[in-house]
């Protein structure tokens, strides 16, 4: 079928794009969404290998990742809301109180 490396390459590209999003955007929500993108890239790798080796453990792991990502998003967004209430802005660069 399709060589495995194509899927892996796609995953790498998506991962890199996710990183770029985390690093380059100042809107906290966009940062979060980039984070989700990175999760997905990892999931893709799992599924690709699961298919390659014809075992199901990769898919099971993807299910776990999804659930955990969902939990993390819930808490993260709650945090975002709280921060917005405090500062009135969701600019990531505004949260620099822990400056050394």
């Amino acid at each position: 079928m399709i060589p495995l490396v194509y899927y892996l390459g796609l995953a790498v590209i998506l991962f890199a794009l996710g990183i770029l999003g985390v690093l380059l955007r100042k809107n906290a929500l966009v940062v979060f969404m980039s984070l989700e993108l990175m999760f997905n890239a990892a999931n893709l790798v799992f599924i690709a290998f699961s298919n390659f080796y014809q075992i199901l453990d990769g898919q099971t792991l993807v299910i776990f990742v999804m659930t955990t990502a969902a939990a993390e998003v819930a808490v993260g967004l709650a945090l975002m809301v709280t921060i917005f209430r405090h500062r009135g802005s969701i600019d990531v660069d505004q949260t620099k109180d822990l400056k050394g």
Partner: peptide
């Protein structure tokens, strides 16, 4: 070393990268 703790989360992420 203190200068690295500039409080910007994104720069921390950059260092990880």
């Amino acid at each position: 070393l203190r200068r690295f703790q500039n409080g910007y989360v994104r720069s921390y992420a950059l260092w990880m990268l």
